[in-house]
Amino acid sequence: MTAPSSGTGSARIHRLAEVGLLVDLADLDAVLAVDAALRRAREDGDPRLAEVLDILPAARTLLLTVPAGADLDPVEEAVRRLDVDPSASAADEAPTVEIPVVYDGPDLADVARHTGLSEAEVVAAHTGTPWRAAFGGFAPGFFYLTGGDPRLEVPRRSEPRTAVPDGAVALAGEFSAVYPRRSPGGWQLLGHTDARMWDDARTPPALLAPGVLVRFVEGEAS
């Protein structure tokens, strides 16, 4: 196991007026490691992070928001002096969410063609490796999932659809995702799920959160 490093290394930290910090990092792995370290420090009661309202990871950046007028000096100090464990984002204790999928998507054959796999092998690859919720996307409940079988890396569709149904399970690039609502989209559609990715009546409303493991399970059409 790699020993934790002191601080965030070559990260660049930008102040967003009086409402937060934007941390520029090298790649998604670095984002996930710093995100895990910040959440752990906040849960442990680090007083420098007491006023942080939210921690929002993206592909290569991490946003920390605070109330307007809050003192950003201690927050920045906490980030700069953070003990970052590169393996923390893959911790065994991360919660796992199972999502049942009916693999009847209109792009399943195209994904098989792109990858050189059979359709059954695409399904086996998608369900055989756990994915990790890395960061949120364009709609509430939409999460970019990373860490799946590398054979499933496929391009977006050359012509996006004007409407993708809610619950569509999809691939694009190195990511998988579930559409939480009907919307335009250019991802390759593998199938669909009845799992509610966003529910205003649920606490919290999002089914997933950064760091959560996702395991897709093949189901049958009802």
Rank of each mutant, 00 (worst) to 15 (best):
A206T: 06
E220F: 00
P95L: 03
P155L: 00
R202L: 08
R181Q: 12
R15T: 09
D194Q: 09
S5E: 13
L49D: 10
A139M: 15
V217H: 08
G141R: 01
L32F: 02
G185V: 00
G128Q: 08
D110G: 15
L72C: 01
D27H: 03
P204L: 02
P74N: 00
S158E: 14
V169L: 08
A125W: 07
L64G: 04
Y144P: 08
D149M: 06
R161C: 12
A36C: 05
D194W: 01
G45R: 10
W198R: 05
P130M: 05
F142Y: 15
V102M: 06
G20R: 05
A3V: 12
Q188V: 00
T8L: 11
P160N: 11
G185I: 00
V34L: 07
L171K: 04
W131Y: 14
E174C: 05
I55K: 02
A33Q: 11
G141P: 02
P47S: 13
T127F: 12
G7E: 03
A170H: 04
S89H: 15
L32P: 02
T2I: 13
D194R: 13
P180N: 01
A125E: 07
D35R: 11
V164E: 09
A68T: 09
E121Y: 10
A221I: 03
L208E: 03
L213N: 14
G191T: 03
G9P: 08
P160K: 12
A109T: 13
R42Q: 15
G211N: 04
A209V: 01
E153H: 14
D54E: 15
G137P: 09
P4L: 04
S6F: 11
D83L: 14
P184A: 03
T127K: 10
V178F: 09
V23H: 06
G137Y: 15
T65A: 12
S158G: 15
E218P: 11
S6N: 10
A94G: 10
L82V: 04
T193S: 15
L208H: 05
R157Q: 03
S5W: 05
R151C: 04
S10F: 12
P160E: 13
F175N: 11
R15F: 10
L16H: 13
P130H: 05
W131F: 14
A59W: 09
E18I: 00
D44C: 06
V75L: 10
P150H: 05
R81P: 03
S89L: 00
L189Q: 06
A37K: 08
P155F: 01
G219N: 01
L49E: 08
L82H: 07
M1Y: 14
S6W: 09
A168W: 09
L56C: 09
A209S: 14
F135W: 14
M197Q: 00
P57V: 00
V212C: 13
E220V: 10
D46P: 13
A125Y: 05
